[in-house]
Structure formats: C-alpha cells, structure tokens
C-alpha cells in the first residue's frame, strides 16, 4: 500500500484534475484511501490509471447508516507493476444517490455497479443496463441497507407448531 507520503502525492494528482475533487485521505492499517466527490470519480480513476493502477478489482457499496451521506461506493484499484493497491471512495446521500458510472472506461464495473444498485440503491448514471442482478427483477427495497430488516422465518418448534396449526399458509 502506498504510505502516507505516496498517498498524498496521489491525492494531489487526483485533485489537480478537478478542483476540490479530493475530500479526504486515509492511511490506516495497510489501507490507503482517497475519498473524492461523486462527480469526480471518473477523472480520479483515470488519473490513477496513469499512475499505474490499471486494474479495477472491486466496486462495492457500504451503508454508513446513522452518519450523513450514508451510501458509500468503494473502488479498489490494483497495480500489477507496483504490486500495490489503492482505494477510492465516494459517498452520496440516500436522497440523491447518483454517481456517474465508470463502465465506459472500466468494463469490469458492469456487474459490480448493478450489484451496488441492487443492494443499496445507488443509481449509476450512464450505465447501459442498470437492472437488479441478485434479487428478482420486481423486488422492492434495497436489502443491504442497514435499516432493511434481515427477514427470515421464525424458528418453529414442535410445540409452537401445535399452537399454530397451518403455519405454512
């Protein structure tokens, strides 16, 4: 992972592309992360691609529920040349969950962005085919948000079954 100085340099380069793009940088426990503004994600990833981080390994969502701007999208980049990883994060609110899609430059983000849409409700503008991928197509709700109930069946024991005949209906 790039250490503190290397990450600051990367963040500076990313911020040079677009003013105010970089919101925060975090280096902790072997993880180097740059948080950018949502509209600057495309240019940030391109800048990092020029720095050698050529493979986008994963795009996943996080729900920071009680905090503001609760929906986060995390992009994990890998550099084969430098054998290094760097992370880019974007945070949007649930009321306006729009993030520009990076599928045009990084084809691998296709399924990943569909999954983030399915599970968290982040809408990726510019994605060619933003449909639900894991849940049924007509499902309502975004399951992996923190305030979505876990669901499931109550555990039925023999005695409760006798008390609730016909529980399967």
């Amino acid at each position: 992972m790039p250490d503190g100085d290397a990450l600051e340099r990367l963040a500076h380069l990313v911020g040079a592309e677009q003013d105010g793009a970089v919101v925060a940088t975090v280096v902790a426990r072997g993880r180097a992360e740059i948080e950018v503004r949502p509209d600057a994600i495309g240019s940030a990833l391109e800048r990092l691609r020029h720095e050698g981080y050529t493979m986008l390994m994963s795009v996943h969502g996080v729900d920071y529920h009680p905090e503001e701007r609760r929906l986060g999208v995390v992009y994990e980049l890998l550099s084969m040349q430098l054998q290094d990883r760097v992370t880019v994060k974007v945070r949007v609110s649930a009321e306006d969950p729009h993030v520009p899609s990076v599928v045009a430059d990084w084809p691998t983000a296709d399924f990943h962005e569909r999954e983030v849409f399915d599970m968290f409700g982040v809408v990726f503008d510019g994605h060619p085919d933003l449909r639900r991928i894991l849940m049924p197509e007509d499902y309502i709700g975004h399951p992996q948000r923190r305030d979505f109930p876990i669901g499931g069946e109550p555990v039925i024991f023999t005695e409760t079954e006798r008390r609730n005949p016909g529980w399967w209906k």
Binding site: R29, R31, M57, S58, H60, V62, E76, L78, R85
Partner: peptide, 20 residues
Amino acid sequence: AGEAYHAIEGPRGELGCFVR
C-alpha cells in the same frame, strides 16, 4: 473501527474480502 480489504489468490482468481 476502520475498513480493510484483504485479497488472496483463490482457485478461480483474486478473492478479496472487505470488512468495515
């Protein structure tokens, strides 16, 4: 508190786990 992404080489490719 924190986030971590740990990746290993699985039989099919890079298997990574992100934990927050």
